[in-house]
């Protein structure tokens, strides 16, 4: 049941936060930049939220307007105007509230969670008189305890990944401009008609030529390395990027080869590929 909730928030489980926006700098000419409102959901712990001193919650410099917590529901209070739940995730306890009845729309009311059970809350961090609380957008009981394990790992993974992204961006100020856009445009710029891809986008992927590969194998490998999205790169994107240079049949053979040799792996489905050598892991 939580799966459907994930879908409605546009983030597939843990990784969704990276796909929605480039990293922490204003974007130009990007459809998604309007409003500057981040669409990402950041997995967090209570302590991270309670310790937050700035107005917006940030992890490694990335703003998170929407956070998700998984923890024990400690105390539930309902009144005519609001529902309040205290969520404890072993790092601390934070109050999560939902103001009800303001628009007469009962469909937006959060699912009530039972005290002493695990629940997940998606919401936004607010503070009042120096006291932090979370406005609930959505709450749901944890129906599979593996979700707790998953959340523990997501919190760590998010933080480490953002740190790595920040570091790699700092190291490569020269290509910062293209970095904000998605892999498509990176490829368009980097792997021009010459197709050798020695400069620009090719190197941005962090993988050089690998000895023993044919030129085309190296080309495909570099393209997959340059994918920055959580789910890697779709086959169609790869096909588009190698058009005129590698025919589809050969590309399939190359993908099979790279998979068998352990250089790439499929991600969300059989058509998405990601590199094991990518720096954007």
């Amino acid at each position: 049941m939580w799966g459907s909730a994930d879908a409605s928030f546009g983030g597939g489980g843990g990784g969704g936060f990276l796909t929605s926006q480039g990293y922490d700098s204003p974007q130009t000419g990007d459809k998604q930049s309007k409003g500057r409102r981040s669409q990402n959901i950041m997995p967090a712990t209570c302590k991270q939220l309670l310790d937050c001193t700035e107005e917006t919650f940030k992890v490694e410099g990335m703003e998170a307007h929407v956070v998700t917590l998984v923890g024990l529901v400690r105390a539930v209070e309902t009144s005519t105007t609001k529902i309040s739940m205290h969520i404890e995730d072993q790092t601390g306890t934070i109050e999560c509230v939902n103001y009800v009845g303001t628009d007469g729309d009962t469909s937006s009311e959060p699912t009530m969670l039972a005290e002493g059970t695990y629940g997940r809350v998606v919401g936004a961090l607010r503070s009042m008189k120096n006291q932090k609380y979370v406005i609930i957008f959505k709450s749901a009981p944890v129906t599979d305890l593996n979700e707790v394990t998953c959340h523990i790992l997501e919190v760590i993974q998010t933080r480490m990944k953002l740190k790595k992204l920040k570091e790699s961006d700092a190291q490569k100020p020269a290509i910062g401009g293209t970095d904000n856009s998605f892999s498509n445009s990176m490829l368009a710029g980097g792997l021009g008609p010459t197709g050798t891809g020695d400069a620009g986008g090719g190197n941005a992927g962090g993988a050089g030529n690998i000895a023993g590969f044919t030129a085309n194998q190296n080309l495909v490998h570099r393209i997959i390395c340059s994918a920055r999205e959580e789910s890697g790169m779709h086959k169609d994107q790869i096909i588009a990027a190698v058009k005129n240079k590698v025919n589809q049949k050969e590309l399939m053979e190359i993908l099979d080869f790279l998979s068998n040799e352990g250089h790439v792996f499929s991600t969300v489905d059989d058509d998405h590929f990601k590199s094991t050598d990518s720096q954007y892991m």
Binding site: T91, T143, N146, T149, I152, V155, I156, R159, K163
Partner: peptide
């Protein structure tokens, strides 16, 4: 039991081991 029956204890144990191996500043747990 409805919550615990398909709980993957080994995965959880690996997660616990992992969170003890991550240095403090990147580990909110």
């Amino acid at each position: 039991d409805t919550l615990g029956n398909n709980f993957e204890m080994n995965t959880y144990n690996e997660a616990v081991k992992l969170l003890h191996s991550v240095e403090g500043s990147h580990n909110p747990w």
